[in-house]
Design a protein around this nucleic acid. Structure first.
Length: 490
RNA sequence: CGGGGUGUAGCGUAGCCCGGUAUCGCGCCACAUUUGGGAUGUGGAGGCCGCAGGUUCGAAUCCUGCCACCCCGACCA
């Protein structure tokens, strides 16, 4: 087994942390709750950004950038929004340091800000304050803007990628003339996220809506995609909010309609974050390290030469150069690891740890036989194949791996999603066989709250296109018309 | 914010009860031999023992205070 990684079985949480560090994705920073995203981890984020950005643009959105700092007064304009974020805001009070004469750098009390600035935890307020100036008429609508940014939420407890004090994300903020159009936008973006998760992250997700309790602060409706991690806990992987006219009213953003009537603008916002990297790690990886979906892997194929003498390496290198060209022509990223400072075994272990989907090992034996050894990360199987048509075979295998890990995750979710009708059974399953629990709920916030207090399970979502059926609430026995999805969550 | 834990070389650690200037492994550097699953040997470099006080001839070790981070909970993408 891998050196230095505790097994998933033994301590899932420790396994996750070890993996992030050992696979060179990120490291802890000197500041509590913040992390340094290292090049290998960041390149995954860059790949995610590239794909999502294209999807956003294909659906008519454009990028812009709004300030990191938001005047404190903006937050008090939307009541439920401030309530949701007040407890976790970083506040800037001064703008200068000075030397205190004893060699210490201290805050210069004379440099106190008239109005404190908030480091954005999300940008609805500053954006809607801006939109006020952009919108007068229905002709100015819709506004379909996205921004790539960092945000800060001063969380009590943090976890690498899953919940850090500062994180990277994108936030879309759109403005519409009608509620229908805004709702359609909200749903469209949820679909974009779901497609991205399933086709790129190889992560099956449930599309659904949050209960009023779990809604975004300031939203009328929150749509989400929920995924199941390998330890049976749920992870919210993306959200899309229908904000109604709440922010338009808070920031007084009105427009004149075709009918010459004055009305408030309808809004949406939607976002995914670097948390997706956490989702990626937790859903596919194993005790030997990361397992990355080929479509997002920074290195898709690694080539390891095995040789005794320099002329052997030269032969191998000449071949690898040719065949790398073929791979690059197919848009497959390949790394030739010809370091002579590490032996092949060490390299094998390293790339397994880093989740490189395919490994090609070539030695003199292969050069004589016209073969290579091909090892896939997801199944950890090896085969010796002909050099003839290798690039094509690799292209095919990468697709297979992408499919296979998706299917594996899907099977896992299916095996760990259970219908439950009895509260005792519900509690037992949460402890003994964690996963999604599909159960009837009477629709009240009180019941939801009580279940949460008693079991730590929350309603992850009410799945879209949910089957309607007559049933009884698992806690109160009151009538219910549909099942909702419960789980303990990250 | 409550509970627990840990701060000693780049990383992981021993030493702390019982005070005498720091152990081991990995990694690093040099050379040689190696290379089809995490190489071996020889030599070498690297430490304000978290910070600040105190006790003492002498503190990693004892006392006081502080700080930081990690883990488990409540809160959240």
């Amino acid at each position: 087994m891998s050196k230095g990684i505790i097994s998933k079985e033994e301590d899932y949480s420790q396994w996750y942390n070890d993996l992030v560090i050992k696979a060179d994705m990120a490291e802890y920073s000197p500041v509590r709750g913040c992390m340094i995203i290292k090049p290998y981890g960041y390149s995954i984020w860059e790949k995610m950004q590239a794909v999502l950005d294209k999807m956003f643009k294909d659906t008519g959105h454009v990028n812009a950038y709004f300030p990191l700092f938001i005047p404190k007064s903006f937050f008090s304009k939307e009541a439920s929004h401030v309530e949701g974020f007040a407890k976790e805001c970083a506040v800037i009070t001064h703008y200068r340091l000075k030397n205190d004469g004893e060699g210490n750098i201290v805050v210069d009390e004379d440099a106190k800000l008239e109005e404190e600035l908030i480091v954005r935890p999300t940008s609805e307020t500053i954006i809607w304050n801006t939109y006020k100036g952009w919108i007068q008429s229905y002709r100015d609508l819709p506004i379909l803007v996205n921004q790539w940014a960092n945000v800060v939420r001063w969380e009590m407890r943090t976890r690498l990628f899953l919940r850090t004090s500062e994180f990277l994300w994108q936030e879309g903020h759109t403005a519409h003339a009608t509620a229908e159009e805004a709702i359609a936008e909200t749903e469209q973006m949820l679909d974009v996220y779901a497609e991205f998760a399933e086709n790129w992250l190889a992560l099956p997700v449930v599309r659904g809506r949050k209960t009023p309790n779990e809604r975004f602060a300031g939203a009328l409706d929150t749509y989400c995609i929920e995924a199941l991690m390998q330890d049976g806990k749920a992870l919210q992987a993306g959200t899309s909010h229908f904000l109604g006219q709440n922010f338009a009213k808070a920031f007084d953003v009105k427009f004149t309609s075709k009918e010459n009537k004055l009305d408030y603008v309808w809004a949406t916002s939607w976002g995914v974050s670097t948390r997706l990297i956490g989702a990626l790690i937790m859903s596919h990886s194993d005790d030997a390290g990361l397992v990355l979906p080929p479509k997002l892997a920074p290195i898709q194929v690694v080539v390891v030469p095995i040789y005794k003498h320099d002329e052997e390496l030269e032969n191998i290198t000449a071949y690898v150069k040719e065949f790398s060209k073929e791979l690059k022509a197919k848009n497959i990223s390949v790394k030739f690891d010809n370091r002579d400072t590490h032996r092949p075994g060490a390299k094998f272990a390293e790339y397994e740890l880093k989740g490189v989907p395919l490994r090609v090992a070539i030695g003199s034996r292969d050069m004589q036989n016209g073969t290579v050894e091909l090892a896939r990360r997801d199944t950890k199987t090896k085969e010796t194949v002909s050099q003839e048509g290798l690039a094509g075979k690799i292209e095919q295998l990468l697709e297979d791996i992408q499919q296979n890990i998706y299917q594996k995750a899907l099977n896992f979710r299916a095996a760990n999603t259970r219908e439950v009708n009895d509260y005792e059974e519900f509690k037992r399953l949460l402890d003994e066989e964690p996963g999604f629990l599909s159960a009837h709920w009477d629709g009240t916030a009180e019941t939801e709250q009580r279940i949460k207090e008693e079991t730590k399970a929350t309603i992850r979502c009410i799945p879209l296109n949910n089957k309607q059926e007559v049933g009884k609430c698992i806690l109160t026995g009151k009538p219910s018309t549909q099942r909702v999805l419960f789980a303990r969550a990250y």
